[in-house]
Design a protein around this nucleic acid. Structure first.
Lengths: 345, 345
DNA sequence: CTGTTAGCGCATTCAA
DNA sequence: TTGAATGCGCTAACAG
């Protein structure tokens, strides 16, 4: 059996309460006593039973998630994952509040962060927009001792505790290398469709894509990036224009959301088999398009993993505990038609 | 607060012990009483606090892992993950025993399964070999009420509870599609190096690869598969011969382990940049080779995830609980030089 | 068949 | 500054 607080108390010749004080370094223990206890802890190789501790504390963690509104499937999937986490609240001892804000609207986001602060939660997870007012709002939360994790899109200039998302420069590079190799010697320019250059993840992906294309396909012409606001209708319109303007278009990299529009435009114009299309996020639509060949590859971040990771990190930070970095690293997944997970995700 | 056993007892007008009997459907409760309690459970929406239950039970799960010996890095990594799980034993309430057996040796494996049975564990995780004597040994464990999970390589004909590994037909298909697209119009045959056709995972990968190549690159010549026993030295020898015999070799798919040999042969002969090489499993060697360009793509299964999943399933099965399918699904990861995880894995 | 009671490992009053 | 006692939600002897 592993040692318990009783063993420590016995070995150190003190009471349970004193052991507890040392363990949770609470005040009111003499230096010598503390030393005695710490030696006993060391000698016995004690590790606290977190489950029992939580049981005794019956602690719950009030958490706030701030998510963008909008019509795109990825964000809806993310929201669904937060709902799923809410359903696990009893088990995970969390109490989750969700705040919705208009997409790509920095003032609204800053205001939502203030609202979250008013709720006095243990932690806040937020899909960030890269703006100074948002940075300030996040920093204020931190000053109040509230843990903050950015979700999907990061906010590097802020004092956020952690980023639960993928390395988007690397994601863009991956897309670039795939595009370069899939096109091979084929002629023609490549287009890039983004959601908005306001969010960090889109800027990072663009940067990575450009760099990798330059390496794996030097001389290939990249068209100026267009921004579709992650809105399917807008993306459809933009892609249709691109296809009309460039009859020799060889490839499209869609680095944001709203892929329903991309897919619709490609299929409507009959260019779905000739243009190499690489997009982000596995949704029912993109899955179908990958299977039919309209999309050639899909990069994905596991929204469920991101939400679960954000919760783990927030809880740990709220308790002042360290997190295991490796477990919280979100992978960039690559899907071809052959390695799609079987469940409709 | 969520309802507890006390609430149920009060509502149903019975004692704690009776509630517990119903909850864990133990015998010795009259039908009417049982009904009363069940109605109360239903009405209150009770969900058991697993942590508290485990604390009260102070149950531990004796588990046995049976792993193949051998010089390849993947299996050593798997063993390391099992060791890591062992280090978490106190927290996860497990007691893990590891049994090593010679690789690709069915009789030895069957014997190890018998040995495991003698240890009377709650569950056994085994890297399977597809042979009737192994099937029989697994079935015997199951008859004794011991949970069995196959790890990495499956045993479809047996009564194992679960397979903790990837869909290897899909993995092979993925490799085939990548190979076809990376080669494009380039001439020349493609070689396949396996470990042994005795294990299911290698047979499955070969099948998938052949099918996908036929689709994405019809007419491309596939050389007869060679078997390197997952041994770096043997693989080196075989690949060197292939390279010598086929000056026009366009690609190599290494579907087993022992990639150090593959990499060495390619680099020694200076064919590393001209031959498109796709292999399995991320190791320090394969990572370096991917970054240098000797390997063009890497398929991977997360050994850590597989081990953790096997343990979760084994524990759940030992308790007669259901598992959440989605969480236990092991993904086929694709790595290019651009999306490698940063930690040396 | 049912109920009482005493823990599991830890945190937290309240006294001393 | 320290200790004794009680309870978190659940299980398991042991009585009745």
């Amino acid at each position: 059996m592993r040692p318990t607080v009783h063993d420590i108390a016995a070995k150190a010749g003190v009471s349970l309460a004193t052991v507890d004080r040392v363990l949770n370094n609470r005040p009111g223990v003499r230096g010598v006593t503390r030393d005695k206890v710490e030696r006993a802890i060391e000698a016995l190789g004690y590790v606290r039973d977190v489950a029992a501790a939580n049981l005794a504390k019956s602690r719950i963690y009030p958490l706030v998630f701030i998510l963008p509104e909008g019509d795109n499937t990825f964000m809806r999937g993310l929201a669904a994952e937060v709902e799923a986490a809410k359903a696990r609240s009893a088990v995970e001892r969390t109490a989750i509040t969700v705040l919705s804000v208009p997409a790509f609207d920095a003032p609204a986001l800053a205001q939502a962060l203030e609202e979250a602060r008013g709720l006095d939660p243990a932690g806040v997870a937020v899909v960030a927009i890269d703006a100074t007012e948002v940075v300030r709002a996040v920093d204020r939360l931190r000053e109040d001792g509230i843990a903050v994790v950015t979700l999907v899109s990061d906010l590097p200039g802020s004092s956020r505790d952690h980023f639960a998302g993928v390395d988007n420069v690397a994601a863009g590079r991956t897309a670039g290398t795939l595009m370069g190799r899939f096109l091979g010697g084929r002629e023609g320019p490549v287009a890039v469709v983004a959601g908005s250059m306001l969010v960090r993840d889109h800027r990072d992906r663009l940067e990575g894509f450009g760099a990798a294309m330059a390496e794996s396909a030097p001389g290939r012409r990249l068209l100026p990036v267009v921004e579709g606001q992650d809105d399917p209708g807008e993306v459809d319109r933009l892609v249709s224009n691109l296809l009309a303007d460039h009859p020799d278009l060889a490839g499209i990299y869609s680095l944001g959301a709203g892929n329903r529009g991309l897919i619709a435009a490609l299929e409507r114009t009959g260019r779905d088999k000739t243009v190499c299309a690489i997009a982000h996020e596995l949704t029912p639509h993109s899955r179908t398009a990958l299977l039919s060949g309209t999309l050639d590859a899909l990069l994905n971040q596991d929204a469920g993993h991101e939400v679960r990771s954000a919760i783990r990190v927030l809880k740990a930070r709220a308790d002042g505990l360290a997190v295991i970095g490796a477990q919280e690293r979100i992978r960039i997944e690559i899907f071809l038609k052959d390695n799609l997970p079987v469940d409709p995700a």
